[in-house]
């Protein structure tokens, strides 16, 4: 998706803690990275200062495959958050489990929300919502 510089993007954007900044930077570069423990190999998400499994601080931002499947899926029918209007509804919100094992919340796009099913294979798509921020989203892929 291309940068939409012609209009102001008003929906919520990540404000980015120091712990999270490399994630958003890698999204902006269209090469998503997640923390991987250099000691035990565990993938960690959401970002944390220490590995959840072994408490090592040697967490390396490592590129992920961008492939995964839908772990849980819901359809939003009510504009609950700022700047979401009836025109945005309904839309999908899913938990996607990447092949690396980490789970991320995102939108599955590229198909109607009622066609998104648990277990469905998906792959990453980068949505450059502003010049500064890219949101990793997911679209259906052939198995």
């Amino acid at each position: 998706m291309s940068t939409q510089s012609q209009y102001k993007y008003t929906k919520p954007l990540p404000e980015m803690d120091p712990e999270d900044r490399p994630y958003w930077q890698s999204a902006k570069e269209h090469a998503l990275k997640v923390q991987r423990c250099d000691d035990c190999g565990a993938w960690n998400f959401p970002p944390r200062p220490l590995c959840r499994k072994c408490q090592s601080a040697k967490l390396i931002w490592t590129k992920v495959s961008g492939r995964g499947h839908v772990y849980s899926s819901t359809t939003q029918h009510h504009p609950i958050l700022p700047s979401y209007t009836k025109d945005d509804l309904p839309y999908n919100v899913s938990i996607v489990e990447l092949e690396e094992g980490v789970r991320v919340i995102s939108n599955v796009v590229g198909c109607p929300p009622d066609q998104v099913k648990i277990g469905m294979p998906v792959e990453i798509v980068y949505d450059d919502v502003t010049d500064q921020v890219t949101l990793p989203k997911y679209k259906p892929r052939a198995n």
Partner: peptide, 12 residues
């Protein structure tokens, strides 16, 4: 604690 990873996707 996770709003950066949730709110941009329109989930509360």
């Amino acid at each position: 604690g996770c709003e950066d990873f949730e709110d941009p996707y329109g989930v509360m």
